[in-house]
Structure formats: C-alpha cells, structure tokens
C-alpha cells in the first residue's frame, strides 16, 4: 500500500491541480523536478507564479522539513534554503486520501556539477566559499545541514550564487544527524561520529570538492584517510588545498569561517608563488586594476614631459622673437 502510494506520488500527471484543504490555494503541476526517498518535488503554477511543491506519503517528513524551513526564514537577510510559502493537505481523489504537502520558492538554477561542467573548474572554489558563508550562518543559529551533497546544491542567478535545497537532514547541534548520504558522511568513512556539529558539514564540503574533481564515485578503502589524502595530492586542482581539505576531513575546523579563511589563503598563496616564479598567464582582476593604475601614473609623466617640451619650445620661440 505504502509502496504504491509512493509510486503514485512520483507520477502525478502534468495538469493535475493540487488544492489545499485548509487554505484553498491551488497549484497546477507543470513537471517533476526530482524525487527521493522522502517524496517528490514538482514545479507548479500558482497565483503567485511558479513555485516548487513537495508531496509525500509521510506526514512526518513534511512536518519536520516545514519546521526547518520556518526556522530558516527567521534567519535575517540570508536565503539559506528556499523560502516557505504554504503548508497544507490535498485530498487526492485517485487514491482517496489526504496527501500532506508544502510549497516553497522555486529556485531556477543548475545542479552544482552541471554548472561546473559547463562553466569550468575555477568555479568550484568560489561556490565552496559561498557555501561556507551560508553554513557559517546556519551553524551560528545552532543547526547543522546534515545531508550536504552536490544534488542538494543549486547554482542560481547572476552573479551565480549557491543555494541549499532539501532541508530533510538539517539537525540541531548535539543531536544525531537526521539524514545523510554515505559518500559525504564522515561516519561512513570511519572518520567521525554522526553527532551533529559544524565539523560534520565541513567534512561534506571537503568531499564535495574531491568529488567535483573525481567525477566518478569511488568507494572507501581500508585506510580511508590516506586514500583521500592521496587522491587530493594526485589532482592538480585539489593539490593546493591539501592542507585545508585534510583539516576538514580530520574535523579540526570548529567553524565554517575558519575553513573559508584557509581556503582563501591557499588560493592566494598559489597566486603569489606563481607571480614570483613565472609571469602570470592570465591576469586577475586585481592585477589588471593595478596595471591600469600604473598606466595612469605613466600617463601623467608622459603629459608632464610633453608639456615641458612644449614650454621649452615656446620659451625658445619667445627668446627668438626677442632676439
């Protein structure tokens, strides 16, 4: 019974109108955005425009996710997750029962890996820095994201900004992580507990970076720490962050902001080294600005020389006149 209901919920047909029993808002299903163990998410049309709607056979799932989304909306000024728009039950005549659902902001974006593939690896570090800023805020509020993985990261807008999706794993610090995915879970790698602390998320950030450079998923080996360390060393993009990533893997960072700071330092450290040893291939924006400034200064000198020469000629001319 449960199984068939779940199946049914991932296959709502286009055009189905979901109407809430309590608030009477209507949502017309446009297409499936994705489905997982806990329900299905659809793109839908409503009076407010496009929205994302999550339906589930489990009241529990809907309720705990709604609780988290509500909390997030209270975190001032930052969009940690999609904003929550409506919570309701829908009487689905085809299965003859109430289906709990919630409605959230539709985030029009691309999955993290798709974006990287299209736009280039240099975006990895930038998006990870953004992610760390969001995590810092979340952690400050006493939460841990939990199920951090590329599938739950959308890159949206201009400038491209990372957004967190699927708050099903979001857990109060000090409690057991509610939901996780093995590959990004430090417990699976034998490198820590499943008690929610900020370091739990930071481990996942390190794994996302590694996975971004090794697109094919790999399995843990006997000595997982060494395995990961070697993989980081072997990759041209990751190598320069080796120390930072290992600290995240070991759970040394207690705050996202520390990891962010070290990543930035590692990024620039390399730039500085490059500058000393070889001429930069591609100028960064900062360098370009500096050069422009230098050019400007050069310009002033040039003008001065020209003015001086003209003055001198003029003086000679006057002198000649007098003579």
């Amino acid at each position: 019974m449960n199984h068939t209901l779940k199946n049914h919920l991932c296959k709502l047909s286009v055009g189905t109108v979901v109407v809430g029993k309590w608030h009477h808002h209507a949502y017309k299903i446009i297409k499936l955005l994705g489905n997982g163990a806990n329900g299905a998410v659809y793109l839908a049309e409503s009076k407010r425009g496009l929205v994302a709607i999550k339906v589930s056979d489990s009241n529990t799932t809907i309720l705990s996710e709604v609780n988290v989304l509500k909390r997030f909306s209270k975190v001032q000024g930052v969009a940690l997750g999609p904003s929550l728009l409506d919570v309701d039950d829908w009487f689905d005549p085809s299965v003859n029962r109430l289906i709990p659902f919630y409605v959230m902001e539709y985030i029009r974006g691309e999955e993290f890996f798709t974006f990287i593939k299209k736009r280039g690896k240099e975006w990895i570090i930038i998006l990870m820095l953004q992610l760390l800023s969001s995590l810092e805020k979340l952690h400050k509020e006493g939460w841990v994201f939990g199920d951090l993985k590329p599938e739950n990261l959308l890159v949206a807008g201009m400038p491209p900004t990372i957004r967190l999706l699927d708050v099903g794993g979001t857990t109060l610090q000090g409690r057991a992580i509610k939901e996780f995915t093995e590959f990004y879970d430090r417990g699976y790698w034998g490198l820590g507990s499943r008690k929610a602390d900020p370091a739990y998320d930071l481990f996942a950030v390190a794994m996302i970076m590694i996975h971004a450079c090794y697109p094919r998923k790999f399995e843990r080996k006997e000595n997982a720490r060494q395995q990961l360390s070697e993989m980081i060393q072997a990759d041209a993009t990751l190598r320069k962050y080796h120390k930072v990533l290992m600290k995240a893997i070991d759970g040394t960072y207690k705050q996202a902001i520390e990891m962010k700071r070290d990543l930035v330092a590692a990024l620039h450290h390399n730039d500085l080294l490059k500058k000393e040893s070889q001429p930069p291939l591609r100028k960064t924006r900062n360098q370009r600005k500096m050069q422009r400034k230098a050019k400007k200064r050069g310009g002033i000198v040039e003008t001065a020389v020209i003015v001086a020469t003209l003055l001198f000629a003029y003086v000679l001319y006057l002198y000649g006149q007098v003579l």
């Binding site: 309590w22 009241n59 529990t60 309720l63 709604v66 609780n67 509500k70 039950d89 109430l98």
Partner: peptide, 13 residues
Amino acid sequence: LEDLPPEKRGEVM
C-alpha cells in the same frame, strides 16, 4: 494529527 491545521502540527513534530 491530520485534524489539526498545518500550523499547529509543527509543535507536535
């Protein structure tokens, strides 16, 4: 639970 309006269910959860 389903007889409670959605707003009230959060606390139960």
